[in-house]
Write a protein that binds this DNA or RNA. Structure first.
Lengths: 219, 219
DNA sequence: CCATGTGAATTGCTTCACAGCA
DNA sequence: TGCTGTGAAGCAATTCACATGG
């Protein structure tokens, strides 16, 4: 099947799936590439091209069966199995994620949470007991943790990621504002609110400059 | 100056800045494009190309002055002015952001927080008093809010975004898992943990398939 | 007739490679 | 000499446009 699928394609697939789930809940039966495109901020051609990398799922002249396509996309994204995640660091972000009940809600199993601070060990956060770091390796292998969420301070992030990967994690979601190095073959994504906010500042500022230039041109 | 700068370039600029701030704190004086590239996960050529869109900031044969470049990037990204943000919806995510003291720490002013739930109005979250939605328009204009953070449930997100923009917001950071429509000229970014997690699942799953194929080839 | 699936055309981003300057 | 700044080349992603089939 598909040789190399780009990150942006995968992100769009997730968005299509998000939309399909909503439509499926509302029991809408059929959707066109156009319909999906409008609800996800892209173009109809893009939707069709993205899907075409994995097969052909639609009926010419009609569109896509909502439920079918939903199932297909879940299959493609690998969401038909259960995934165990562990949260490393239960400071502000880590405990927010756990308290939220976020993972369970979205179909991920929270297998464990860890923190270096003895004061936090033993706490119950959203039904998960915080464990000491010393138990990391054993717990990862016992519970088959494959996704590690790094929510530690910057200083600890790289070490935690390295340990998680050694202990069997195949993917890392990093909330610490540093670049982490992981062996090739380990998947890695970063989330950083500051980065997004700064991006917005740039856009607003740059839009202002463009407006200035237009004003100049008119003079 | 620069005509159209791509989103990915802007994201990288933010990363360079993040790194430069760390180096500046440690009083490192000079950094090469290579040095920046390694710490931010890109290539030296990419760093130089990105910067070249805005001018030439380095000294040939030496590299870049850390502090200088930091200031230049802050200027480019529009971070030399103060930005007022408002948080719309103080459920799990909204209150986590406020409680974190996140924005103030990173140089953004939290001007206000709003919620539709009367039970939440009046609460003090991280030093910000939660206001009723009826005060949104007045507060946005009084306090010059230019960035709206949408942290409401999906159902309310579009309406809140529309109101925020009408009330003067020039940028929207959306935590609700829906595509929001805003007038052109308004900057918009989305953050969704689920999207990132699903991306990781795909990568791990697809890596498995690749391994299968390789194994097949060997047979 | 309508919307998909897809090669071909295009646009845009990244990488290369080297001239230019401290 | 060493590292920047930058056109040109190479590559990847998006868009176009149409043949295809329900």
């Amino acid at each position: 099947m598909a040789r190399k699928i780009s990150d942006s394609t995968v992100r769009r697939l997730s968005r299509y799936l998000r939309r399909l789930r909503a439509l499926d809940r509302r029991e809408q039966k059929v959707v066109s590439s156009r319909g999906l495109a409008e609800a996800t901020g892209t173009t109809a051609a893009q939707v069709r091209k993205d899907l075409s990398h994995f097969g052909s799922f639609g009926k010419r002249g009609q569109g896509y069966d909502v439920h079918d396509l939903r199932v297909q996309l879940e299959e493609i994204l690998g969401l038909t199995r259960r995934w165990s995640v562990a949260v490393l660091g239960v400071g502000k972000i880590g405990s927010a994620l756990l308290g939220y009940g976020f993972f369970t809600e979205r179909g991920f199993d929270v297998a464990a949470a860890f923190d270096a601070d003895p004061a936090k060990v033993g706490l119950d956060l959203g039904g998960v007991r915080v464990q000491p770091l010393s138990e990391l390796e054993q717990t990862f292998s016992d519970r088959g943790v494959s996704i590690a969420i790094i929510a530690t301070p910057v200083e600890a992030a790289q070490e935690m990621a390295t340990r998680a990967v050694r202990a069997g994690a195949r993917a890392v979601l990093n909330f610490a504002p540093v670049k982490l190095n992981v062996p090739s073959g380990v998947a890695m994504r970063e989330m950083d609110v500051t980065l997004e906010l700064e991006g917005l500042c740039y856009m607003v500022t740059a839009a202002g400059h463009v407006a200035d230039r237009l004003a100049d041109d008119i003079e």
